[in-house]
């Protein structure tokens, strides 16, 4: 398998002394399902957003698809972002618009300014959006307004919006943090399915260790802006988990709530 994404000595500094990320290096292969775990404020979200340059890294190189994206200019950046889908904790849909309109927003990056402004989509794009919504089990909801959907349904719309981009990689920022266990399972199953059948690389920020353990090929543990674990789920022993979460881990264990997050 070829390497799709590689981070080399990436650091991110806010202001003069707040370091969000320091010297992060790792590579993600095509088709991998990678989970990034770590306590709140460890820099998981910042790390994820550096990968599509929603946040600019202060130093280091980020190689995506054999090109150094840190040097990308506006046009190239736009093209890069069309090939990376993103999914959010709070879904970030336009609530007043219908499901299909929100899904088609994923095509805006491919369009001319005017076609995007007027919302003119080709038949092919609409068919693709319908097909994806069908796969995600939302064919009944296609013309509903998004504010009438449940959380799990909204997140599936978010996934559809990312998939309609034809992405090579999906970045998921806490995709199940606002969902109940059942909806969480549906979402994670969909992500795993996307990864295995479509060959799309998935990078997920997670709070739930057990979910990360059962779904990913690989786990990256982050604490205080540095990588403290990088390996298979099987190799993630209790001691190593304690290394990622610090004292917080014992509390998680003690309360019996492994889902706590």
């Amino acid at each position: 398998m070829t390497t799709l994404l590689e981070l080399k000595h990436v650091s991110k500094q806010y202001g003069s002394d707040t370091k969000a990320l320091s010297d992060i290096s790792f590579a993600v292969k095509e088709g991998e399902f990678v989970s990034i775990i770590g306590p709140s404020g460890a820099g998981k979200s910042t790390l994820l957003r550096c990968m599509n340059r929603m946040i600019e890294a202060s130093s280091g190189a980020i190689i995506f698809d054999n090109a150094d994206i840190t040097a990308f200019r506006k046009r190239e950046l736009k093209k890069l972002r069309t090939s990376i889908g993103m999914i959010f904790q709070h879904y970030n849909l336009v609530n007043r618009l219908s499901v299909i309109e929100n899904v088609l927003h994923g095509r805006l990056g491919y369009k001319s300014m005017l076609a995007g402004v007027l919302g003119i989509y080709t038949e092919e794009e609409k068919k693709k959006a319908h097909a994806i919504l069908g796969v995600l089990g939302l064919q009944e909801q296609i013309y509903k307004r998004c504010d009438q959907l449940s959380g799990g349904q909204k997140q599936r719309v978010g996934i559809a919006r990312a998939l309609v981009q034809n992405p090579k990689m999906l970045l998921c920022d806490e995709p199940i943090a606002s969902l109940d266990p059942n909806a969480s399972k549906v979402i994670m199953d969909h992500l795993a399915h996307i990864c295995s059948t479509m060959g799309i690389t998935v990078v997920v920020n997670l709070h739930q260790v057990d979910v990360a353990l059962s779904y990913s090929n690989r786990i990256i543990g982050v604490n205080k802006g540095t990588i403290v674990y990088d390996g298979t789920p099987a190799g993630l022993t209790k001691d190593r988990l304690r290394g990622i979460y610090g004292a917080e881990y014992d509390e998680l264990e003690g309360s019996g709530g492994r889902n706590a997050g």
């Binding site: 929603m54 069309t82 919006r161």
Partner: peptide, 8 residues
Amino acid sequence: ALRASGAG
């Protein structure tokens, strides 16, 4: 979300 998908 829209910026991340490449929208202007």
